[in-house]
Design a protein around this nucleic acid. Sequence first.
RNA 1: GGGUCGGUGGCGGAAUGGCAGACGCAGCGGACUUAAAAUCCGCCGGGUUGAUUACCCGUGUGGGUUCGAAUCCCACCCGACCUACCA
Length: 868
Amino acid sequence: MSDRYIHKEIEAKWQASWEKQGLHDTVEAPDKPKWYALTMLPYTSGDLHTGHWYAMTPSDAAARFRRMNGYNVFFPIGFDAFGLPAENAAINNNIHPQEWTYKNVERMRGQLRRMGAMWAWDREAITCDPEYYKWSQWFFRKLYDMGLAYREYAPVDWCPNCNTTLAREQVWGADRHCERCDTPVIKKDLNQWKFRITNYANELLDNLETIDWPEPVKVMQTNWIGRSDGADVTFTTEADDPIEIFTTRPDTLWGATFMVLAPEHPLVAKITTDERRGAVAAYVEQASRLDEITRTAEDKEKTGVFTGGYAINPVNEERMPVWIADYVIMTYGTGAIMAVPGHDQRDFEFARKYELPIRLVVQPPSDSEAGHIRCADDLESAWPGPGVMINSGPLNGAPVGKGEGESVKAAIAWLEENQKGAGALNYRLRDWLISRQRMWGTPIPIIFCAKCGTVPVPYADLPVRLPDDAQFKPTGESPLNYHEGFRYVKCPNCNGDAERETDTMDTFMCSSWYQYAYVDPYHKAGRPLSADDMPWDSARGDYWLPVDQYTGGIEHAIMHLLYTRFFTKALQDMGVVDFDEPMLRLFNQGIILGPDGERMSKSRGNVVNPDEYVDRYGADTVRGYLMFIGPWDHGGPWDPSAIEGVNRFLHRVWSVVVDEPNPKNEEAPPPTDDDVRSLERKLHQTILKVTEDIGGFRFNTAIAALMEFNNYLIRVKNTFGALESRASRPTAQPIWQESIRTLLLLMTPIFPHISEELWQRARNVIERRNDARRSDPDGCPDTDGETWSVHLQSWPQADPEKAKEDEVTVVVQVNGRVRDKLNVASNIATEKLEAMALASANVQKWMNGKQVRKVIVVPDKLVNIVIG
RNA sequence: GGGUCGGUGGCGGAAUGGCAGACGCAGCGGACUUAAAAUCCGCCGGGUUGAUUACCCGUGUGGGUUCGAAUCCCACCCGACCUACCA
């Protein structure tokens, strides 16, 4: 055993020892409060990068902190294993995706072990294991039975590079590119499976209030769900065909002067007059092509074309021209709008361009910037703001707004009374498209039979296994199409010839329920399933669920976090769970950047390999450094030289605990009562600070407090004497030992290895001196049944009384400027403090005989004398 | 265009109404060493000053509230992220 801190000698040793002791094995202990700490599962890319360390090691520190605070903590790990990279690697290297994936899993397990985290390896789950995905299929089947999974022939977003469809959530940015490869997506008409997430739109929105999640995530989900409050109104064409519209401003119905349909609207063909047919067809053609190239195009210039047809405004029977324009889109609302150019900017621009009538129905308030507006001709742009209703029949005089007695409510009441429409909610959220035309995913358990139609695979026949020998040509069709043994099957109903669904599921399906799988991975392995099954052991589930603390990146704010919430709500309706939110608390860490301050990427050449640093400095240093950079939710650049500071700190801690003090100081006077009191105060102040900071994920300031405490211990080490000489200094000895033990306990969540090593060493020294039990020379725990691991110790408790300062420095200000400082006993009487401040020579100098107007005294902090 | 978060020494950051710059990095000076590394000690926002326990300036910009503002309010500038013809 070395007397110096050599991380290579201790980290692997303790990792092996903890595993041997079963320190991180999962036990459902009903007598203890449980804590389910979850960090987002890694994809099996084959390499754990710095971002993983940045996400996972603080999560581990928080979990360990909970454990030391008396919780039975579950901190599981697994692998998100299906998906495109495996398939692409397979195509490029002619290796089966499964082989590639499991090789990566093997490598990543090793890398994860080196973190020294308290992973519950006994509950590991890999999503591409048939015993895992059989439950993904079971969930699909359940959703199908509940009518929450359906197949639809409709235009979908298609990535021509990945050769697959994408969910709306996977299409990013104004240019609508693929989330994974940045290729602009195109539209295709395809038969695809979807989940009815929109059934839960309202619940997904309202329940956000019940969970402790970061505000930005809540805002993003709120915007994504996009609830609009308004009314459905039915217009009619002159041929008596209904045109349904949705509007958030039913109060402006009397200001509608024309209608606009999306080019794809089903009524376009019928309403178009013969003389307009050519122009309309050309525009529809142009719009659809635009759609396929780049739908957004910079020009905000509105375009459109008149159909020749007219519709009747139900509120005033006015005849209004019907146009088509691509600024109206089929996928929101009903694909048709009433145009109110006076009060909607888009309609205004369109009306001005095509010389359509504009009507003012809201009189802007006279004190607003539009106060001069008297008629539509005065408008330079639409007025969407407040005012009073005019030119609007029964609504005239109503104040504009959505409240009681205000215009929108009045309009809805009028519509409902006259049976022309009704109040309605509309959502931006679309159903979740889960079909993927790729091979490396969970097969969708559906069979198409010529006679029986769409037949779900019976529960007892699950899993539908991926064939081991499938080809994966990138053709744009599902590769499983080409596997005859997979594709052609007998119908489970009639035993006639049938074909399997050959699309696979979006991988977000696998990660939507993995937190449940961890509780009891591969439940019922090897046994047939039924509709009445529970997907995990219910006793275990009842104990651990739901997740208490989730940690992960903001990039999943919408996709994964919305899907898993939807899944949980569906599971609740299935009767599988009895709660409605999967994760009670969420923390989003920031992004660790390259040394150049840019996102790490191979092309930039700024990728930091954590393994190199773990080799050089050890896992404890890398963990501590990542937590010390700054607030965890800020992220920030990796500074290769700053990591030295944390490493030096660990060496200094080692030295404080292990090294003998300078023998020259043997003759130094023993510590005074004041020395003891100061050390005790510093100790309890540090406990308070570190406890509060780790509890709030403020690891950076927790580490700063630990450094400060250690610096203090270095300064007083010689005063408190050598280990051997402590015996001669009985008053000092207990507080010094308590300080060392407490420092190690406070360091444990963040620096698990060195804390354990020094904990054992400090214990050995104490025992040797007490001539008590001899401990195992390799530092392994005793075999007498008492567990000595530092990780099983209780978190130190601070005594606020002992943390209090006896003496404080009070700042004396004159007119807000510091002019003197007074060292006084804490809790000094206000009057006394004021008198002392006024008597100060420095203060007298600045008062210069002027009148004292006011004296502000903040106890134990400051006196401000206002003169003038 | 809309939304969210942010702007503090050479750098990462601390302080969220009460001494701005904790803790660390880098830098400078010194001790130890044949030398270097490591380690240890000291200095480290700017200015006035020989030096100060002395004074002034200083938290993106301008204004406000307050005895007192990095912190609260208003306006603006800059940056990051999200979102985008949503009727």
